[in-house]
Design a protein around this nucleic acid. Sequence first.
DNA 1: GTCGGATCTTATCGTTCGATCAGGTAAATG
DNA 2: CATTTACCTGATCGAACGATAAGATCCGAC
Lengths: 211, 211
Amino acid sequence: MTTVASRPAGLETRRAILDAALDLFSERSFDGASTRGIAELAGVTQPLLNYHFAGKEELWRAAVDDLFERLRTSMQHRLSGLRGVDEVTIAKLMVRHFVEFSAANPQLHRIIMQESKRAGARLDWMVETHVRPLYEYAVAMFERLAARGELAPVAPAHLYYLLTGAGATVFVMAPECQRLTGVDPFAPEFVAAHADLVVDLLIRATTKESV
Amino acid sequence: MTTVASRPAGLETRRAILDAALDLFSERSFDGASTRGIAELAGVTQPLLNYHFAGKEELWRAAVDDLFERLRTSMQHRLSGLRGVDEVTIAKLMVRHFVEFSAANPQLHRIIMQESKRAGARLDWMVETHVRPLYEYAVAMFERLAARGELAPVAPAHLYYLLTGAGATVFVMAPECQRLTGVDPFAPEFVAAHADLVVDLLIRATTKESV
DNA sequence: GTCGGATCTTATCGTTCGATCAGGTAAATG
DNA sequence: CATTTACCTGATCGAACGATAAGATCCGAC
């Protein structure tokens, strides 16, 4: 915690600001999160945000960049060393990792859902920079599974939003879930059970005979 | 449009304000929607909001009341005149109506998701006033279906958020869906197909043998 | 016809917002 | 030791926020 090292004290500060920004942006939306609130949560003064980032919009982009980067690296790490495994198993593993990541990082879909409600520059940037590559990857996987007869040839838009909606919503709405059901959706047992259900959902509910 | 009638000119204004408030609150969150923006969308001046409603918070509550009231009445209307129909059919019909209502009124889950991200007075009020009755009804239905062997005895929190997440997310995120996939999720064919998938998902993916 | 309450507007209040400026401190450099 | 540079803070700007006060308008009642 105490700044010890040579020069790069700014890197720790930058990280603290990014983490605080991610929390507040995801929880209170872009407009609802004030730069003063982010600064307070990060333990710094407000003008420091403008020293490290060009402005509020730029800070938001940096936080979102950082979040998607974590998703990519964690997914790659999870799937590394899987040579020769059949694609159905890989698909199940990816869905499972997606659910677990959504539980460990509820900010991801909170921000995505927030921005996706409204067309605009932030949504355009987020989609083209971060979401589309994931979507294209998922679509390609859907198509390979459908060609093998493992998945019904349902339009990818349906499958994609069924997957993200079913897998992430309960973690996005964790405070409501806690209050409404008394269940903590971040509890490891709940996350594991939910991942099982979503995997079953996507793989079994859309097998060829079913739809 | 032109105010014809006797006295209640205020009722039309009140309705215009409520509609505008619902659109902006759901799209830009409570903090992101300004009273001036709502007034402009409603075609009135900003102080008029404080004449018809006690304040921004009160306006938000009135708009949410109105929205949930529409959900209740439309559901009752859809289910009226269904005597002697077996419960599985009723359940399917309710899921279908839920998806269709979510498509016709994307504000519903936009507001629910927005407020559910963060504990607070607005979430508490919304859950206890509007969400809990729906949840209790759904849980009772899950339990009856499970007792008949039509549904696996999965914890209701999973089923509830699978249903709402799978059924509503694509409409909440309609602008992203449009830009990402080129598909308009509000198109009648898309809504119908999505409702089919969700019904299948909930009824078939959780039959006893599956989980 | 005029009176009274309901409806709506103009002007403005104090607060908070994001951003900037001028300066200050401390570590690296010569 | 003197100077420079990276990092950080206090003070403050104009704009936008939610709210209110004071008054205009209009319609039904008597």
